[in-house]
C-alpha cells in the first residue's frame, strides 16, 4: 500500500474515522455471524431429533409415501435462485444503485414467498390427509424441522420487506449497506440449512421405501 501514503490533501483523521467506522460495522457483522452459528446448533439439534425419530411412524405413513421429490426439487430451486438474486442485490448495493438493489430484493422476496407458499401447501396437504404432527413422532419431528426453517424464512421475508422500504426512504448509505450485508448473510444461511433438509428429509426419505 505504499502508494497510499497520506498526503496533505486529505484529512488523515477522516480516513481513520472511516476505517474505525468500518471496523465497528465489521464487529456488528461478526456478531451477526456468531448468531447465525448458534442458529446452526439450533438446527443441528432439530436434525438430531428428526434422525432419531424418523422411523417412529407409529403405524402412519413414512417419508417415502408422503414426500414428492419433484415438489421438493421445485422448492429447492426457488430458494436457491432467491439466494442468488439476494447476492445480486448486494452487488447492486455495492455499486450504490438504489433501483437495482430494490429490484433484486423484490425478486428475492417473490421467490422466497413462492418457496414459503409451496411449503405451506405441502403442510396443508399432509394435515388435510390426516397426517398432521399428531400422527406420529416422525411427523412431529418433520413439522418441527421444516417448520422452524419456514419460520426463519418468514422472518427473512419480513426483514426483506422492511429493508426495501428502508432503502427506498434513506437510499444506500453506510448504515443500509451494513444491514444489507447482514440480511444477505441471513438469507444465504437459510439456503445452506435447506441443503441439509432437502438431502436428509426428502432425498434420504425417498430412499427409505
Amino acid at each position: 500500500m505504499s502508494d497510499l501514503v497520506p498526503s496533505a490533501q486529505v484529512d488523515v483523521k477522516e480516513v481513520n474515522r472511516l476505517i474505525e467506522r468500518n471496523d465497528e460495522d465489521n464487529t456488528t457483522i461478526f456478531g451477526f455471524w456468531v448468531y447465525l452459528m448458534t442458529d446452526c446448533v439450533l438446527f443441528g439439534s432439530l436434525f438430531a431429533v428428526f434422525t432419531v425419530l424418523r422411523n417412529n411412524t407409529f403405524g402412519g405413513p413414512g417419508g417415502a409415501v408422503l414426500f414428492s421429490l419433484p415438489y421438493a426439487l421445485i422448492e429447492t430451486l426457488s430458494l436457491l435462485t432467491s439466494s442468488f438474486t439476494c447476492g445480486l442485490a448486494v452487488l447492486s448495493a455495492q455499486r450504490k444503485s438504489k433501483k437495482q438493489t430494490v429490484f433484486w430484493f423484490v425478486v428475492t422476496f417473490l421467490l422466497g414467498a413462492t418457496f414459503l407458499g409451496l411449503e405451506l401447501t405441502e403442510f396443508h396437504k399432509f394435515i388435510a390427509g390426516g397426517n398432521s404432527w399428531h400422527r406420529s413422532g416422525f411427523l412431529s419431528s418433520y413439522f418441527a424441522l421444516v417448520g422452524t426453517h419456514g419460520l426463519h424464512i418468514t422472518i427473512g421475508l419480513i426483514w426483506i420487506a422492511v429493508m426495501t422500504g428502508f432503502i427506498l426512504k434513506r437510499g444506500i448509505n453506510g448504515l443500509t449497506m451494513k444491514r444489507i450485508r447482514m440480511l444477505s448473510l441471513f438469507w444465504h444461511f437459510l439456503d445452506v440449512v435447506w441443503i441439509f433438509i432437502f438431502t436428509i428429509v426428502y432425498l434420504f426419505g425417498a430412499l427409505h421405501a
Partner: peptide, 18 residues
C-alpha cells in the same frame, strides 16, 4: 506515489472489509 483521493479512501476502507 499517488495522493489519497476519495476513490483511494474507498479502496483503503474496502480493504478492511472481510
Amino acid at each position: 506515489m499517488s495522493s489519497l483521493t476519495s476513490e483511494n479512501i474507498d479502496i483503503l476502507v474496502s480493504q478492511h472489509q472481510p
